[in-house]
């Protein structure tokens, strides 16, 4: 939203060949509540980190599900694990565990995926 103008927009096509869903699958296997997220954004609205920087858990969760892992990898460590998002989530998603699992996955677990 920062730049209003006629810049050529980025490609928006989702390339299912290039995207890797391993991490999303790894997470939903270990934390099934990841699957029931409705992408409502309550978590991002209350986020402690989001107060300081454009960090949105909702966005990261969507990207994870799509398998666009690059942005997630760059940003997931910004979360402070404070737990506000878990408390406000209307679907009872265990967000802290989702974030932890994602970190773990980017760390070492699924080496080839990222």
């Amino acid at each position: 939203m920062d730049k209003f103008g006629f810049a050529i927009s980025q490609q928006r096509q989702i390339d299912f060949e290039a995207n890797r869903r391993d991490i999303a699958e790894y997470i939903s296997e270990k934390e099934p509540s990841f699957r029931v997220c409705i992408e409502c954004g309550c978590c991002a609205a209350t986020c402690t980190t989001g107060n300081f920087t454009p960090f949105s858990l909702r966005e990261l969760l969507i990207l994870l599900k799509r398998g666009e892992n690059d942005k997630v990898r760059d940003n997931i460590n910004k979360c402070m694990l404070c737990g506000k998002c878990t408390l406000v989530c209307p679907r009872g998603v265990n967000t802290r565990n989702v974030i932890s699992l994602a970190r773990e996955a980017f760390q070492d677990r699924i080496k080839n995926a990222v």
Binding site: F52, M80, R96, S100
Partner: peptide, 16 residues
């Protein structure tokens, strides 16, 4: 008052 930074204990509890 306008939202602070987490105290750090949740990260410690997560082993970080």
């Amino acid at each position: 008052e306008n939202g602070g930074v987490c105290c750090g204990r949740p990260l410690m509890l997560a082993g970080q």
